[in-house]
């Protein structure tokens, strides 16, 4: 019977007839709903602002007329981006806030990951679930939870006042500090998990060998643990830094008028100012900025693998 069925399907080690569908289906989906939209963004970033709906010109009327669009290209939106210091400031402040949040997250996550990896083996799955679980619960709700804590006369103020530590409200809500807290909190699992993974993989005999060769506990930490956790540290920093740059929800809910972040600027340009070409240009420039950490990380990962 086995040989019978073998003959019935296509020969060799390949798949039967619909084999190509396995690749084609997801491929087509991604081309249509991922790549094509980006080409459109690029296209619109290079078109004139217009008050018509949809608010850009020339109007998209069909695939056959693609050539017409190319003739109407202009760089007006990009000129606005470069000319108005608001946008430059927003990009810079996004980078600064994301970098600060990444650093704080690293400082909190490393001891936590180290303690998890050092805990008795049988506890580790439970600890892992504990760290991952908040990641599964709604991002929006977790940010919202901090609103109740940080707002004037909120939970934190009430607690500190109750303890007699402060007289005045801290006034943390709608500040950059609040944004940083929200980011560190939301992205902490992304930092903890890769660091934990690299620490958990660390061969214990390496630490024993270092001790055997006379290294003190501190020396072992600096010379062995940190260098070998480096892949996890880099991955964690990447996973926190990149989404933090383009973050919208956290600066919108926790930040104030003076916390400028590019994700929020894009949102405002699009929904409030209805300047679609400018919003598109903001997006394109943001992508170019994101390419820097992406390429840097890729280079590191490739070097690690070699």
């Amino acid at each position: 019977m086995e040989t019978g069925t073998k003959a019935r399907f296509s020969p060799g080690r390949g798949w039967p007839a619909p084999r190509w569908l396995v690749v084609a289906l997801p491929y087509a989906w991604l081309l249509a709903f991922f790549l094509l939209p980006f080409l459109i963004v690029l296209r619109i970033a290079l078109s004139d602002t217009a008050r018509a709906l949809p608010p850009y010109a020339p109007h998209w009327t069909g695939w056959a007329e693609a050539w017409n669009f190319l003739q109407a290209l202009d760089l007006e939106s990009f000129a606005t981006l470069v000319g108005d210091s608001l946008y430059l400031d927003a990009y810079l402040s996004s980078l600064r806030i994301a970098a600060t949040a990444t650093l704080i997250a690293l400082l909190i996550a490393f001891p936590l990951a180290y303690a998890m990896a050092s805990a008795p083996r049988r506890w580790q799955p439970a600890l892992l679930i504990l760290v991952i679980l908040p990641f599964w619960t709604s991002f929006l709700i977790r940010v919202y939870a901090w609103m109740a804590i940080l707002r004037p006369e909120g939970v934190l103020d009430a607690l500190l006042r109750g303890l007699g530590l402060i007289d005045e409200p801290l006034g943390l809500m709608n500040t950059e500090t609040a944004v940083l807290i929200g980011m560190v909190y939301s992205y902490l699992p992304f930092m903890v998990l890769p660091i934990y993974t690299s620490l958990e993989r660390l061969d214990r005999s390496l630490l024993e060998a270092a001790a055997d060769l006379g290294a003190t506990p501190l020396r072992r930490f600096v010379s062995i643990v940190i260098p070998l956790a480096r892949p996890g540290i880099y991955a964690g920093c990447f996973l926190v830094f990149v989404p933090a740059i383009g973050e919208f929800v956290i600066p919108d809910l926790l930040g104030g008028p003076e916390t400028l972040m590019i994700g929020k600027v894009l949102w405002t340009e699009f929904f409030s100012n209805r300047d679609w070409p400018l919003a598109s240009a903001v997006a394109i420039l943001l992508l170019l900025i994101l390419a820097v950490p992406l390429l840097a990380y890729q280079r590191f990962a490739r070097k690690e693998a070699a």
Binding site: S205, L206, A209, A210, D212, L213, S223, I224, L228, R230
Partner: peptide, 27 residues
């Protein structure tokens, strides 16, 4: 262990993967 005058050759060798041969021996 780090203050004992004994040294061990580990079964897995436990060579530090991020250090050169020189640095391993010099450690």
């Amino acid at each position: 262990p780090h203050l004992r005058p004994t040294n061990m050759m580990f079964q897995s060798y436990a060579l530090f993967p991020h250090m050169s041969v020189f640095d391993n021996i010099a450690f």
